[in-house]
Design a binder for these strands. Sequence first.
DNA 1: GATGAATGAGCTTTCATTCAT
DNA 2: CATGAATGAAAGCTCATTCAT
Lengths: 201, 201, 201, 201
Amino acid sequence: MQIKKEEVKERILQAAEAEFLELGYEKASIRRIIKSAKTTIGNFYNYFEGKEAVFTELIEEVYNMFIYVIENHHKWNCDNSLWESQDVNVWRVGLLQLIKPMMPKLDNRFLLLMDCSKGTKYETAKDKLIDVLTKHFIEHIEEFSLDYPHADIGPILSKQLISGMVESLRSTDNIDKRSELLIEQVLFFAIGTMGILSGRL
Amino acid sequence: MQIKKEEVKERILQAAEAEFLELGYEKASIRRIIKSAKTTIGNFYNYFEGKEAVFTELIEEVYNMFIYVIENHHKWNCDNSLWESQDVNVWRVGLLQLIKPMMPKLDNRFLLLMDCSKGTKYETAKDKLIDVLTKHFIEHIEEFSLDYPHADIGPILSKQLISGMVESLRSTDNIDKRSELLIEQVLFFAIGTMGILSGRL
Amino acid sequence: MQIKKEEVKERILQAAEAEFLELGYEKASIRRIIKSAKTTIGNFYNYFEGKEAVFTELIEEVYNMFIYVIENHHKWNCDNSLWESQDVNVWRVGLLQLIKPMMPKLDNRFLLLMDCSKGTKYETAKDKLIDVLTKHFIEHIEEFSLDYPHADIGPILSKQLISGMVESLRSTDNIDKRSELLIEQVLFFAIGTMGILSGRL
Amino acid sequence: MQIKKEEVKERILQAAEAEFLELGYEKASIRRIIKSAKTTIGNFYNYFEGKEAVFTELIEEVYNMFIYVIENHHKWNCDNSLWESQDVNVWRVGLLQLIKPMMPKLDNRFLLLMDCSKGTKYETAKDKLIDVLTKHFIEHIEEFSLDYPHADIGPILSKQLISGMVESLRSTDNIDKRSELLIEQVLFFAIGTMGILSGRL
DNA sequence: GATGAATGAGCTTTCATTCAT
DNA sequence: CATGAATGAAAGCTCATTCAT
């Protein structure tokens, strides 16, 4: 029965993941989770300290990685010569190489962090990502020495990009499909950003 | 009557609008609303039949307009010669003319409809808009006689555009600022769409 | 408008009568009553002191009469020779003569008193009638010098008779039909009583 | 578990039975029930799904039996030669034999079904019994080849009989007393019915 | 380890009644 | 005369969490 122990915990975690994904943290119901995990309330509290503890356990790893990436993103030098091409398909190939190693981490747990964490101490994670993306946008403005006067659009485009990532991940479980969708989105944002910043179509 | 009836009703409506905007329909609490509107539960039910009735009253007008626009969008012929320009600023001017008359309707009530209506009979409104936008995207693909192989991105881009509109409206109450942000977004999407569909940057 | 005054009161009384008849005193709702009477809550309280006051006004007259009859029933000497007949039809004629003058009082207001007064100060009226009927039953036992050993059935038969009267009145508004049903019932009870007391069929 | 589960459940069921018996289903209050059962609202919902579920649990068994009897009553051949006697006491003995096995089921739960079920899905039970009794009455009319012109009294007598049964059960908890009262009532109704149908006393 | 009994705050809604206008 | 705003208790029910067994 020692082995079984972890099995129950796993069942709870999976049931909780599904519940959180569907309803978000606040509307999720422990009663439904334990029913779906085929265990009891009391036992739930043997394995977890409470509702938020389950959530924490689900996303802790991906959250730590996420924070690491956020805080070290400036080290990532991706000034690949590929980006100088005018052919979108060349970009696609470059982006695929870039994204591929990240895909295993862009899973449902990451979705929880980005889209289902309202009400937990992790609800600021999304904002952190927005900040980073927004700063990138500002850097692009400065880099092009442009006096683009609508810099306020930065956080909004960032939120949009994230919401698009979220929707891409939500739309399928297939990792290749997810890569494809994410690449198209990033392409879309790159093109859009260059367009409005350069002022030419 | 001690107080002019409409004043209390207005207080309730405003408190409810704020509550719904912040928490969404389902998590909104009538008790908080009436406390913030400085009245009592019993009195709340003198003015409204219930929680959903308040929401309906807040949203009804903008919803009817919304449905009208959705159902008649094909009649809107905007084949303006402006769009043939290569200059983004020319587009900006054209979009401003297009968007200006709609701005008074793109208010917090519209936000409620798009982003806070889950749990009400209006929760499908957003999907209807997504459908229309997605169909537009598909038409663009066909129009360019392109065999763009990532059509699945259509609904995702549509959701993104809407989430961007929502964020634009949420970011400020100033109508001019809102126009500006919406225009940048639409520009952004137009450029991005043309880019990924044409394959050239 | 002076004449109108009583008209409103009358509308309220009629709406209340219908509501009380259908739902009983406690489940009756003033809101429904005033809606059906096409007036307002405030105005309701201009005419009546409250829920119970309407009820009182509806049944006061019939209640006073009822109490008078109850308290003076022993004076009613109806030892009519008719009752010595063996023919039920002869009884029918006699009963009709007896009941006819009472019929105008055995109306919906009386129904309210007997069947819809729970929760008011009149809820004991029915019990008083039960007492009188039960005493009659006991007198019959003594009169026949019988040692009928099931005297406990007395109050039950009394309640039954009343419930039958109530059902008769509820089943139709037609006064002749009501008389007919009441007569059959009383006959039924007379026959039944004589039967079980005499021990012969 | 601190207390043997069934004990609390039993306390709730008994408190509910008393509350339903006194006030009927609709006016019964869960808060009063749990107070009388010395537990809490939350705990109530650990044992029962809701108000109607408690009622159902109280009534289910007796209801199923009731429906079975209603639907199979025509199979009950009680053409006992006893009924040909002219002596009421002979009938009493016969009725006692007939009623005795049914008595354990004619308890407070049955009372709930007949007299306290308004507002539940069981509220039609009484009407079904009325129908059966009324049809019996009609059969008696036809059997005697009589043209008794007051057949409308049938449903009223049926309701009366049931209300009498209800009152008998309400008047005491003693099973022998209940039998006695029920027998007297049935006798009373048999005699009354024969009397008004035959036209002779 | 596993069970589920117990708790109480909170939810939306209905109600009779008071009273200022 | 008439209006309806205001009130607060009570209803049935859901919830996350604690803890004795």
